[in-house]
Amino acid sequence: MFKHYFEGIQNIEVWPIISLTIFFMFFIGLLIWVFKVDKKYINEMENLPLERPETTNDN
């Protein structure tokens, strides 16, 4: 069904290459960030959901 629609689009074969390139660059950038990020920051973010707020509004 979609084959008929895609046949009329010019240069459609370039979009999968662009999509793969964007994904690959994002993945490599994320890996670089993971290896370069400060471990103190990771530990702080890791424990953030477990920390109790300093001020509570208990009625």
Results as ranks from 00 to 15, higher is better:
residue 22 I to H: 04
residue 19 S to I: 13
residue 1 M to F: 07
residue 50 L to R: 15
residue 20 L to N: 05
residue 17 I to F: 05
residue 36 K to S: 11
residue 31 L to T: 02
residue 51 E to V: 08
residue 44 E to I: 12
residue 34 V to A: 10
residue 7 E to M: 13
residue 22 I to T: 14
residue 26 F to P: 00
residue 28 I to C: 07
residue 33 W to N: 10
residue 26 F to Y: 06
residue 14 V to S: 06
residue 59 N to F: 13
residue 33 W to M: 09
residue 22 I to Q: 04
residue 45 M to G: 01
residue 27 F to P: 00
residue 50 L to F: 11
residue 30 L to M: 13
residue 12 I to L: 12
residue 27 F to D: 04
residue 33 W to V: 07
residue 45 M to V: 14
residue 17 I to D: 02
residue 41 Y to F: 09
residue 14 V to W: 05
residue 23 F to P: 00
residue 56 T to N: 12
residue 31 L to D: 09
residue 55 T to I: 10
residue 49 P to L: 06
residue 56 T to W: 02
residue 47 N to I: 08
residue 16 P to S: 03
residue 54 E to Y: 05
residue 17 I to K: 07
residue 19 S to D: 02
residue 53 P to S: 05
residue 42 I to N: 04
residue 27 F to E: 02
residue 42 I to V: 15
residue 54 E to H: 02
residue 33 W to L: 13
residue 23 F to Y: 10
residue 37 V to F: 03
residue 9 I to Y: 10
residue 30 L to R: 12
residue 43 N to K: 13
residue 13 E to I: 11
residue 58 D to W: 07
residue 37 V to C: 05
residue 23 F to D: 01
residue 29 G to L: 11
residue 15 W to Q: 07
residue 50 L to C: 03
residue 45 M to Q: 12
residue 16 P to V: 03
residue 19 S to A: 15
residue 20 L to G: 14
residue 9 I to G: 01
residue 3 K to P: 00
residue 31 L to Q: 09
residue 10 Q to M: 10
residue 19 S to L: 14
residue 58 D to R: 11
residue 11 N to W: 12
residue 2 F to H: 05
residue 10 Q to E: 06
residue 46 E to Y: 07
residue 29 G to E: 04
residue 48 L to Y: 09
residue 10 Q to D: 03
residue 42 I to K: 14
residue 28 I to E: 00
residue 18 I to F: 08
residue 2 F to D: 04
residue 29 G to A: 13
residue 21 T to C: 13
residue 9 I to D: 00
residue 15 W to E: 03
residue 45 M to W: 12
residue 46 E to P: 00
residue 2 F to K: 04
residue 34 V to I: 05
residue 16 P to E: 00
residue 20 L to Y: 05
residue 43 N to T: 08
residue 11 N to A: 13
residue 28 I to P: 00
residue 22 I to L: 15
residue 38 D to S: 15
residue 24 F to N: 08
residue 29 G to N: 14
residue 47 N to G: 03
residue 10 Q to F: 10
residue 18 I to D: 01
residue 34 V to G: 01
residue 45 M to L: 13
residue 4 H to F: 07
residue 47 N to V: 05
residue 57 N to V: 09
residue 38 D to H: 12
residue 19 S to K: 12
residue 56 T to P: 03
residue 41 Y to D: 01
residue 26 F to S: 07
residue 5 Y to F: 14
residue 3 K to T: 06
residue 38 D to M: 07
residue 34 V to Y: 04
residue 46 E to N: 03
residue 33 W to S: 10
residue 7 E to S: 15
residue 10 Q to Y: 14
residue 58 D to M: 05
residue 55 T to F: 12
residue 26 F to N: 09
residue 59 N to H: 08
residue 55 T to Y: 12
residue 57 N to E: 06
residue 54 E to S: 10
residue 4 H to A: 15
residue 27 F to H: 09
residue 25 M to P: 01
residue 24 F to L: 15
residue 1 M to I: 03
residue 1 M to V: 05
residue 57 N to M: 08
